[in-house]
Computed example of a mutant assay.
Amino acid sequence: MTTHAFLETAKDVFRVESDAVANLASRIDQNFVDSVSAILESSGRCIICGMGKSGIIGKKMAATLASTGTPSFFMHPGEAYHGDLGMVTPDDVFVAISNSGETSEVVKLIPFLKDNGNYLVSLTGNPESTLAKASNSHLDISVEEEACPLQLAPTASTTATLAMGDALAVTLMKARDFKPENFARFHPGGSLGRRLLSTVNDEMVAERLPLVAPEASVLDLIESIGVGGLGIAIVQSSAGLGIVTDGDIRRAVQKYGDNLFQVTANDVMTPDPACIASGARIEDALYLMDKQRITSLLVTDKGQVIGVFKK
């Protein structure tokens, strides 16, 4: 194959798969509404099940649902048939994925699910299949063609399945009025979790703060900035707060020249620096810092500096 052929093949794949996803919109109907309603009304979990490539997509669906407000987990159909069905309660909604709708490992779970009273949602490419007909709701994920030139490897069909799963998850998110704060609770280790769940107290520098008096000399300021390692010195007095940055020192050198050592912190500081209250969210601190275009924020408690939050 030539370089041109490589590119054309890739473009064909994108075309086939994008068409597969676009065509889903014309096929969703009351079954989709019923599926969403069943999951919303359920007091149990949403259990996703699928074999092979469908199972891989199912794992992603379960992860997306679980992280966006719908308690979910993936169950392998083979393991289900050998004991894991014990985890399925009558209150659970069972979502079964099979492009053919005839996958034996999935189909043979139907009698148990019926007897257990589970609401069964199926995602198949064949509305006349055994699985589709046995379901309470059927979501049609059929595709006109696979991107695979042999029409054997699941490609467009798995993309369509993934998109249908995302449609369920997003619809459920909106129905539950799922907010960024809710998402952050399930992602405490991510950047969003840090911004929304952590407070400035969790990350501020509170030891060896570079505090100086208003009458401190330039040499005192330089020493405090160096020892503190924050690039600033904090001027604290009964009259209020001020801040001196290393940039302020450089500008003072240019401005005062030979008289530099007669200058005090009070002469070069920025009065009333940006502060944030102890216990504030990191999200609020970062918003304030972006708005004021600063990289350091004083954390205060009852008018006293207790820490410095750095971007």
Rank of each mutant, 00 (worst) to 15 (best):
A10Q: 12
F14T: 10
F14K: 11
R15C: 10
V16R: 03
V21L: 07
V33D: 12
D34W: 14
S35E: 04
S35D: 02
S43V: 11
I48C: 05
M51Y: 10
M51V: 12
M51A: 13
K53R: 11
K53N: 07
G55S: 10
I57C: 06
G58C: 05
T64Y: 04
A66I: 04
T68C: 06
T70R: 03
M75A: 11
H76N: 13
M87W: 09
M87T: 08
D92K: 00
S98I: 00
T103E: 03
V106S: 02
I110S: 01
I110T: 10
K114D: 12
N118C: 12
V121R: 04
V121L: 09
G125I: 08
L131K: 05
A134I: 01
N136V: 07
V143Y: 01
E145Q: 14
A147V: 01
P149Y: 10
P149W: 11
P154G: 05
T155L: 03
S157Y: 07
T159H: 02
T159P: 00
A163I: 05
L168V: 11
A169H: 04
V170G: 09
K174D: 12
A175L: 14
E181F: 11
H187G: 00
G189M: 03
G189W: 08
G193T: 07
R195L: 15
R208C: 13
L221I: 06
I222P: 02
E223K: 14
G226L: 10
V227P: 04
G229E: 09
V235G: 01
Q236F: 10
G240S: 07
L241W: 01
T245A: 08
D246K: 08
D246T: 11
D248Y: 05
V253R: 07
K255A: 12
D258V: 14
N259P: 07
T270P: 10
T270L: 08
C275Y: 10
I276G: 01
S278I: 08
S278E: 14
S278P: 11
S278L: 09
D284Q: 15
D284I: 09
Y287N: 12
L288Y: 05
D290G: 15
T295Y: 13
S296D: 15
L298C: 04
V299Y: 00
T300F: 06
F309S: 01
K310S: 14
K311M: 14
